[in-house]
Design a protein around this nucleic acid. Sequence first.
DNA 1: TTTTGAGTTGTTCGA
DNA 2: GTCGAACAACTCAAA
Length: 472
Amino acid sequence: MSDPLVIHWFRQDLRLADNPSLRQAAAKGRVLPVYILDDVNAGRARMGGASRWWLHHSLAALNHALHGKLALFKGDPLEIIPRLVRSCGVTAVHWNRCYEPWRIRRDGRLKERLREEGTVVDSFNGSMLREPWEVYKADGLPYRVFTPYFRKGCLNAAPPRYPLPVPERLSCADLPQESLSLDELGLLPCIRRDIPLEPHWHIGEKGAAERFELFLKHGLPGYREGRDYPARPNVSRLSPSLHFGEISPNTAWYAAQENGSGQEDLDHFLSELAWREFSYSLLYYNPELPAVNLDASFNRFPWIENHEALLRWQHGMTGYPIVDAGMRELRQSGYMHNRVRMVTGSFLVKNLLVHWHEGESWFWDCLADADLAINSASWQWVAGCGADAAPYFRIFNPVTQAQKFDPDGVYLRRWLPELAALPDRHLFAPWEAPGSVLRESGITMGKTYPLPLVDLKLSRQRALDAYRSTRT
DNA sequence: TTTTGAGTTGTTCGA
DNA sequence: GTCGAACAACTCAAA
């Protein structure tokens, strides 16, 4: 009788370090590492283009780390895993838990099916500092306001699990015959783009660790203030890696604390990790979060259907430089700086009065870090209908925001080369620049750069009126 | 039980 | 140029 054979089913935990399920599996016997691309059960939450692109490269990296032993499949795990269990003589199936409603449903059914057939099933917490059912108020209900969630639920609660090392002895089974090649998953052809995303990233567990190291050294000191400036190197850019589990939040949590930076910088970084968990909790307790306004009074909000405006927003052609720079960063790199996400989001739902669903679904397709919980919770927050949302009258002014957070225009010029020659004082509102300045900068308004899509003052007032109409 | 005060990230206007 | 108030109203944690 040989060693027991245990499937570790990789999902949102594409790493070897701090992987509780994999570690346990390795301790039990030989491991059959499996990844399954599941477009069957995802329904409307089917993965978007940029995420697929990231996933492709992350799987390549993981397979490399596993010496080519990662078995790949495409289809329904409810069929694929029980079939593997039978054909390979698997004794146990392990995974780290996921928290999207469709995955919870699927995993529950699989667990039931496998146990009926006598297979051991074990699931672990590999993706959360604390799982949604571990954090609740004194009255037993989940938090709906972030700050107490963070203070009481995170900072003053029992510390999260300390990260685990890579399994000391990992002996992988041979690839099953029906395993697919990475290319056969078809993750890359799903996105058609003119500019490659690759130069912006180093993908996989190793890339994530390196990016995080750089952040600890150069980003965390000054994080509190610097994180608001899109041209400064203070943000971690860890979101896609956290989403796919190339690095665990526990690793980030403890490494940041052990880095010896200032308390303020540290607290703000930890609170960003907590925002991720808060969003997961919101989705867990409100499974309709991606579609339904948390604040029902928004159900009568007079959104406007404006296809042309939406198109111009999507392609970074609104005529407002910070909005356009952000939307182009998104399409060209699969990422957008956090502050710019708020500015572009506010512009879509308030200045254009386009439904937040449109923004949510564009971001879903374009963001490498697209995450159902975070994306829906954040769009609800921007639109004002979410939990703990900003007051509606907080409407970002794209000109002011750019002047304040990109005063030298470094971010704007990087993503809007057609405006690069404009002097600083006209960069933030090019439509107000004198004709001579525009000519010298090689700009023809309406031709080489668009005129503003809407008037800021009028559209702001229109948004406030629209909001008031829902208050009665 | 009641009360109090705070709530991720803003803008505008007028003194 | 700087500063404080107004902008709405409500939820909800915590004293």
